[in-house]
Design a protein around this nucleic acid. Structure first.
Lengths: 213, 213
DNA sequence: AGACTCGTGTTACCGCAAGTAACATGCACG
DNA sequence: CGTGCATGTTACTTGCGGTAACACGAGTCT
């Protein structure tokens, strides 16, 4: 029949698409984010136009590639966020999950966040349109959790969104810096960030001699 | 003499360099970050090779361009951070200064942070190598201020650095999101972020029915 | 069986931007 | 005057993203 036929073709196309994505993944992880479409096609054992038929343009390939990793990461984060534990523990678990992820696969992480810092020229994937989505999605996700779980009085929704994006940004920037310099253990970083979120900034005493920061 | 001659030439070269940078600035602000070297050269009334003689490559031009804006922004932030007021006021003033800057010149901001989200292809400046520096510099700067002013007990230096980068990241991500969606006034955003830093996350009560976030 | 469609694959090309070589010109200095 | 030397040019190469145009193979319709 028509439908079964269509389904078969669909299946085959989807399988192919997945294979191509895996090839692309390998290349990106090996050559860095400035992997060329030619290189990806070669790795997949085919040539450029096929990639374009499947993904439209480079942005499409990137988006498909990023979505896989992004979804996986978001699932882990959701799990940590939903664990049965008290608030501080959840926050620490979530931070730790994120940091573990970027620590375990820094190449993936760098690809998702800083696509175009490859070796030679700047022929890479672009960020702007795509790295934002990851951060934004995490921010919105967190905002939703915050708003669901916390009693923040009036304007709780807006407050939650600000906090969601703010906390995600904090996590991201601190993680990025930490991944580059490795100034301390992961646990220490998690603790320091949680302390910050827990108001230690406000509670800290002034240093001798000044009005304090 | 030799020295005076050299000085004259140096001066002339520097002036030229500044002119070129201003032209580049205009083009980048007009055409977005994917401005081509040709376009910049044309705006400056000259041709490509001269740009390359002055800045080496596109990254060099970018770096020079970014340094101007980055330095200016950092100066403003330092001023806000050093103002004679209590801690909370300073934090709010600093946040507000940053947000005012990105609000006043979003194009500059987007250029510094998300260079490659132009219209057509991805021929833009690259981020990774350069956007990091701005965030990193802000983070280190803030870390230094924190460490100077606050009594954080043992490990104060590391804690200060974590916080510096974390707070800067929070500011950056929230600002980025805010700039795109404009969900509230600048003052409200500043207040929300300061509240977050002031431990309201830890202090908030649980919503009915759950163990709380 | 033979024509038709359709998905998959190819080669060969266009356009465009980064970056470079080689050549021209104006100006100070011996 | 000729010799550097900075400044400027045109014309080129290379490498990328992206796109025709064509070729083959497998099922489908009559």
């Amino acid at each position: 029949m028509d439908t079964t036929q269509r389904t078969d073709q669909q299946r085959s196309a989807d399988r192919r698409r997945r294979e191509l994505l895996e090839a692309a993944d390998r290349v990106v992880l090996r050559d860095g984010p400035q992997a060329s479409m030619n290189a990806i096609a070669a790795e997949a054992g085919i040539t450029k136009p096929i990639l374009y038929r499947h993904f439209g343009d480079k942005g499409g390939l990137y988006a498909a590639l990023a979505k896989r990793h992004t979804d996986a990461l978001l699932d882990s984060l959701r799990a940590a966020l939903d664990a049965p534990a008290d608030r501080r523990e959840r926050v620490e678990a979530t931070l730790d999950t994120y940091l573990s992820a970027i620590e375990a696969r820094p190449q993936v992480y760098r690809f998702l966040m800083h696509p175009a810092e490859g070796s030679q020229s700047d022929q890479g994937f672009d960020v702007g349109k795509h790295s934002a989505p990851l951060l934004r999605r995490m921010g919105e996700e967190l905002a939703q959790v915050i708003e669901e779980r916390l009693d923040l009085g009036p304007d709780s929704q807006q407050l939650a969104r600000v906090w969601g994006h703010g906390i995600v940004g904090m996590m991201h920037a601190a993680g990025d810096w930490w991944l580059g310099e490795r100034p301390c253990s992961r646990a220490a970083l998690v603790r320091s960030l949680a302390d910050l979120l827990w108001g230690r900034l406000a509670a800290a005493g002034d240093r001798v001699g000044g009005p304090g920061f």
